[in-house]
Design a protein around this nucleic acid. Structure first.
Lengths: 334, 334
DNA sequence: TTGTATGCGTTATCAT
DNA sequence: ATGATAACGCATACAA
């Protein structure tokens, strides 16, 4: 690997001049500039971004911390962030937290130690206090799908409570009264806020929340199948099932079909997130759209604006979920 | 951020000694070691991995290049690689190539310039020659889902030809004779090898390959729907459709249902990859298992063995796909 | 406009 | 066992 030194020697100029043409921030005469460019081309020179980063304490790369690398939710989120940043000539360093406090902290420290110019994190296990303290440091941290009052300027979040409300309201509007709910892990803010919205919708229609029609799942398909199995074993009838995300909804649908439910006539199901395959389930899944991809783009724009001084970008910090009507909810009115 | 220098001052030892206890590679007396450890703790010292990397030209991090960040295929692959490496105390730097030659090269050069100890790449657009030349460099490059003869030691691949054969053979074994095929982009080796297997299975059963029952899709859902639309417009009957991946199969299934086909009685469909949602489609999708997650693990093991001298790891370089029988293929025998 | 010199935070090679 | 000191490849303040 050729270094800046070899380039300078071949071009017959100093290190500094080579550095200047690389970054073209200072004025260099066209003639010497061309000499340097030629030398670079001849040597196939590639700047070492590690050295550059050490010297300048910048890196033109943004750290991303997600819970998991697989799954439609994080995939869309990462893709949104990456495409926006890449278009701006920045690179992305991705690592995972697995929803465990230790791993989330470890991931963040890794990203900081790599001199990331900023971090976009989807963290679920670390406390608000930790995040607030973290933001005192030199690496700004932005939060995806999480709202922390003190960090409101750096949060891109979804109104999950509203989403939870919309889901259950859609069910009620279709004439359902006996409604079961499979929630996500309650330490996750997304999950608990969706549940709050669910309860608000019930209350608004004077339907009492029934503990026997409530199950806490794992946000995965198994949560849906385990949940529906549990719910059917209680001695309570229900005509509709609200799932706190689409993966659990798909698990529930599968379990339902295997156990003789007719969908949606025998059991209406609604999901949350509107992941790509919701539209390919049968029946197609009615759900709440979670615009993660757009939120990823927006998080990236926020970083571009704050950290890289792209002043004119318009930022929208709280996204509103919307109902996506498909065919997994039956109308029970009259 | 405290530096090694401040630690050395507080502990009353030299820089070198601090470095030694960090890496505990040289002997340090227990007493001084403890002093250093205490100083580190007191200062909340975190080593700067950039500086460390510059000085040692190692980084304990492995670069991963994937085509896309979203989608079940890459998600599983990344997750497999990451979990294996993380367990070994290594970190992962992920970037994308979007199946475009320029971006793939750019991604690889970024990873090299970040001093990655190795690169695991899923590249589709760059040539074999480029990859061979790349491997002359100091950063070893490992290939996922691609086999290059000269680099066979560094390839983790799937026998796609066999997979393509198995898919079509399964269809034929169920009594089908009129078989349509939706292929993937033929510049992708995966796609062209699957097609080769398809043709071998046809030939083996003396079924002629029919250009009118052939469509090249984009490996996405739209490829499936567009493909089936195209195929139904030709004046050729067919009872079965082989899709070169599950996403196209799901698109085809949806299109089929919307256009009056009964599944699987009216049209049998088989996919490829066995992505997570194949099991949640209706009817559940018969497909060919592509063990990407395992292959990810294996690629990581290969790196651990070659680059980090974990000699005793067992490496399997070519994976065999297997048929997953579900309910999207109807039996037409007698 | 161009060059010199120093520093970024480590590792590693010498000495001692 | 420990300490000086020179790299690592580049950016940048200061000179010229």
């Amino acid at each position: 690997m050729a270094t800046i030194y070899e380039v300078s020697k071949l071009a017959g100029v100093s290190l500094a001049t080579v550095s200047r043409v690389m970054n073209n921030n200072a004025r260099v005469s066209d003639k010497t500039k061309q000499k340097v460019l030629d030398a670079m081309a001849e040597l196939g020179y590639r700047p070492n971004s590690i050295a550059r980063s050490l010297a300048s304490s910048r890196s033109d790369s943004i750290g991303i911390l997600v819970s998991e690398l697989h799954g439609p939710f994080f995939g869309q989120m990462m893709a949104g962030i990456e495409s926006e940043l890449r278009a701006a000539g920045k690179h992305v360093i991705i690592t995972t937290g697995h929803s465990e406090e230790d791993k989330e902290k470890d991931g963040i420290e890794f990203l900081i130690s790599r001199n990331c110019d900023a971090i976009i994190a989807h963290v679920e296990a670390v406390s608000d206090e930790y995040l607030i303290e973290l933001n005192e440091g030199k690496t700004p941290v932005y939060l995806m799908s999480r709202f922390v009052e003190e960090l409101s300027e750096k949060c891109i979040s979804l109104d999950n409570e509203l989403g939870g409300y919309l889901a259950t309201k859609a069910i009620i509007d279709n004439g359902h009264q006996k409604i079961a709910y499979i929630a996500g892990p309650q330490f996750k803010a997304d999950a608990s806020n969706r549940l709050l919205g669910h309860k608000r919708a019930l209350k608004e229609s004077n339907i009492e929340f029934n503990e026997d029609l409530f199950f806490i799942g794992d946000f995965k398909e198994t949560g849906g199948s385990d949940g529906l199995r549990y719910l059917t074993k209680q001695n309570e009838q229900f005509t509709a099932l609200v799932c706190a995300n689409d993966e659990m909804a798909s698990g529930a649908m599968k379990y339902a079909r295997e156990h003789g439910f007719r969908l949606p006539e025998g059991l209406s199901i609604i999901g949350f997130d509107n992941v790509i395959f919701a539209n390919y389930l049968y029946p197609t899944l009615t759900t709440i759209d979670n615009p993660v991809n757009s939120m990823g783009h927006m998080a990236a724009k926020l970083v571009l604006k704050d950290v890289y001084q792209k002043k004119k970008l318009e930022i929208e910090r709280v996204f509103e979920p919307t109902l996506i009507n498909r065919h997994s909810v039956a109308n029970h009115n009259n």
